[in-house]
């Protein structure tokens, strides 16, 4: 009985903390959406109050002031092509590293793992110099091509593919299947969880990235949503602040929708990252 009572108390405390925490996490998002439905003057005078009258001025304003559909298209082009290229190249390399014992494999893989520990800051300046010299600044390939070489993604997929039984691959080889058939028909379907992890993390990283576009996409017609927001924020006069909130809401909605649809995969993606270590 005593054990049970102390447990009751514990549960009450636990749920209280968890519910307060949930409100603290949700409130900023509520603040954002709430203000996107008010007028600028109302935001200025009472930022926390509910709108006295729901206004879509922010949303229409954003479409007038800023070509949101173009920004959305640019963001999509970048995120989709980066995700596709990254996942395909990583899966190909990971398969070879996991299942084809070609001479030199362990040396290349070991070297790769070593470079994985190098902090990204080291690549910032020289990569820019390289991209600048080959004249890619201002073009999408400046962002798409260099980001296709994530060592970490290969590592993640390879760890998963190592777990696929060798017998499956060997049996297919004996049946006369070529390496491409084995890769497409056996390995890829079985490695789907790992591929999903990599695709989700890559898509999210690219969608949320503002720094790459800031460095390389200097022309407004190439801007992405994130860069558009960053540049737009400084130019909006106070009485139009509803536009900023409308834009932040518009940017956040797609990724949150994807998250709600496949949240198990999202959460697993992050957990996988740590478990593979």
């Amino acid at each position: 009985m005593k054990y049970l009572r102390s447990n009751w108390l514990f549960m009450i405390v636990a749920y209280t903390i968890l519910i307060i925490g949930a409100f603290a996490v949700i409130y900023p998002f509520f603040f954002m959406v709430n203000n996107s439905l008010k007028t600028g003057r109302e935001i200025m005078h009472s930022p926390t109050a509910l709108p006295t009258e729901v206004s879509f001025k922010g949303y229409t304003g954003v479409f007038d002031e800023l070509n949101v559909l173009l920004l959305l298209k640019n963001s999509m082009i970048l995120a989709v092509s980066i995700t596709l290229l990254n996942t395909v190249l990583s899966a190909l390399a990971a398969y070879a590293f996991a299942k084809i014992p070609f001479p030199g494999r362990n040396q290349i893989f070991g070297f790769m793992l070593m470079t994985m520990m190098i902090p990204g800051v080291l690549f910032l300046i020289p990569t820019y110099v390289l991209i600048y010299r080959i004249g890619w600044v201002g073009h999408y390939q400046a962002l798409i091509i260099p980001s296709a070489i994530s060592v970490f993604n290969i590592f993640l997929i390879r760890q998963f593919m190592v777990g696929i039984p060798d017998e499956l691959v060997e049996a297919a080889r004996i049946d006369g299947a070529g390496e491409i058939t084995i890769f497409l028909r056996i390995i890829l379907p079985l490695a789907r969880p790992a591929l999903a992890t990599v695709a989700i993390l890559t898509f999210m990283g690219s969608w949320n990235d503002f720094f790459g576009p800031l460095l390389y996409l200097n022309r407004p017609d190439k801007w992405t949503l994130q860069l558009g927001l960053l540049q737009f924020r400084g130019t909006v006069p106070g009485e139009n602040s509803e536009q900023i909130w409308a834009l932040t809401t518009l940017i956040t909605v797609p990724i949150v929708l994807i998250y709600f649809f496949i949240q198990e995969q999202f959460v697993k993606a992050f957990a996988n990252v740590s478990l593979s270590k």
């Binding site: 190909l92 290349i108 070489i149 390496e179």
Partner: peptide
């Protein structure tokens, strides 16, 4: 195991240009 090289080559090529070269640079 020649296929192994074919599978890793697209990645290795890009890695040499956008991974190793910047590091040396």
């Amino acid at each position: 195991h020649g296929w192994g090289y074919i599978f890793v080559s697209p990645w290795v090529l890009l890695y040499l240009v956008f991974g190793i070269y910047p590091l040396v640079l």
